[in-house]
Every structure is written in C-alpha cells, then in structure tokens.
C-alpha cells in the first residue's frame, strides 16, 4: 500500500517537476551566484550556502507533498472505494506518511547530491565537505522534512483539502513561529514551538532559530508531542469521516 501511495504522488507530473525544479534549481542558482561573486564556489562554504536553499525549498516541498498525500484520496473521491475494500481506515491513513516521505526523499536527494558534490570539489584552498558535517546535516534534514511531511499529511486529512493546509503551515513555519520566538513574555512556553525544537539539531550555520536555548530532551519531547498530536488528529478524522 505504501507503493500505491508513492505511485499516486509520483504520477502528479506538475507537482513533481515543479518541486524538483525548485529543489535542484535553487541549488544551481546558489552555486552560480557563488561562482560569480564568491570564492570558492564550492567546498564547505558553498555547501552550506546550498543548504539554505535546500532547507527553505525542501520545507515547502515536504509540506506540499505531505498535504497532497493526506487529501488526495478524499478530494478525488476514491477514499470511499478504498474503505469499501474492507481495509481499515487507520491503515489507509497510516500508509500515507511513509509514502509521502519516500517521495520527499526522492525530490531532496538530487539537490543534496549536487550540493555535496560542490562541497567535495570546487573548494579552492578552503576546506571541503567532511563526512561528519554531511552526516549531521542529513540527520537534521530528515528530522525537518519528516516533521513537515507528517504535519502536512495529518492536517490535510483533517481538512480534506490541501490548499489551506499548505498555506497555513507555511505561515506557521516561516511567519508565526519566528515571531513567537522573539516574544520574551512567552517565557518557557516557547519551548513547545516545533521550529526551534527541530532546529536544536541543526548546526549553528544553518539553524533558523538560534535565539532559544533548548535542552535535547526538551527538543525531542516537543517534536514528539507535535507529531503525536498531528498523527492522532489525522487518524481520528480518517476513521470517523463519512466516506
């Protein structure tokens, strides 16, 4: 069933080509700009520049793919036919998440490989990309895109459509949370913001939130609560919705 989810997403040619163009195109633009204005084009510095683009556009892509995965059976009217096969509604919801994640990985990997290739070459006399740095960044990207995919999938299952969910999550991720982190009166309540919790696991050069001091256990707890609540909401809606 996960393969079926991948098929449904991967055959959306418009979405796939647009996402791939954003991912690969943004990295190529960064490298092109660096080739003209900065030295070196690649190496660890060029790689880090590419990571900004991958994080920004990858976040958008993960949100869009997750939201599409969560809503496409409902919006196409096929959900009732899937329910009528006798397979559990919870399973129908659950398989959407890994299916969407596989597609997101497929879209992010080409862009990352270009960034990594530039990081290993084109370094001039500066440092090249190290294995440890790549490992840390890959872990962070998996966490960031994984959480956004789950949120997109769960909330679009709740809403039954993807448009508002994609817009809402973009506003939450890139507008609301950055604002909230700067409101000191919120005190420790800010520990429960998802963005800073995920960025706790990013190196300082690429982290979007460097203002909050979080412990690792608190960061994991915050991520776990967001994922659990989102998953529970999506599963509840899939199970209770009139198909």
């Amino acid at each position: 069933m996960i393969a079926a989810e991948v098929l449904k997403l991967a055959r959306r040619r418009g979405l796939m080509w647009t996402a791939l163009a954003f991912m690969v195109g943004s990295v190529l633009v960064i490298l092109a700009v660096r080739a003209v204005k900065y030295t070196p084009t690649g190496g660890a510095d060029g790689y880090t520049g590419c990571m900004y683009a991958i994080i920004s556009f990858g976040g958008l892509v993960a949100t869009a793919i997750g939201a599409t995965a969560g809503s496409q059976d409902h919006s196409s009217g096929v959900f009732r036919d899937l329910v009528a096969t006798g397979v559990s509604r919870l399973k129908l919801f659950t398989v959407r998440v890994p299916g969407a994640m596989i597609v997101v990985v497929g879209l992010v990997v080409p862009a990352y490989l270009i960034a990594a290739a530039a990081g290993l070459t084109l370094a001039g006399d500066r440092a090249t990309l190290s294995g440890g740095l790549a490992q840390d960044d890959l872990g962070y990207l998996a966490l960031l895109f994984g959480t956004l995919t789950v949120l997109g999938c769960a909330f679009s299952t709740l809403a039954g459509s993807r448009g508002w969910v994609i817009g809402g999550l973009i506003v939450l991720e890139w507008v609301v949370q950055p604002l909230l982190t700067h409101i000191d009166q919120l005190g420790r309540a800010r520990d429960w913001l998802l963005g800073p919790a995920v960025d706790h696991f990013a190196r300082e050069d690429i982290a979007r939130y460097n203002d909050l001091e979080l412990g690792s256990s608190q960061a994991w707890m915050t991520i776990a609560v967001w994922l659990a609540v989102a998953f529970a909401i999506g599963a509840w809606r899939a199970v209770t919705r009139d198909a």
Partner: peptide
C-alpha cells in the same frame, strides 16, 4: 464484495490500470 457507489471516481492523473493497482494494493 465489489461495489460502485454513485458515479465511480478515480485518480484522474493516473491511468486506468494504475487506478486498479491502487485498489489491488488495498
């Protein structure tokens, strides 16, 4: 059991065969 409820709906961006693969997977 096999069923058609109201008008049959499909993923329009997929082929007929791919739509059947979606249901077969379930």
């Amino acid at each position: 059991t096999g069923a058609i409820v109201e008008e049959p709906r499909f993923h329009n961006h997929l082929t007929g065969r791919q739509n059947l693969r979606i249901i077969a997977a379930a």
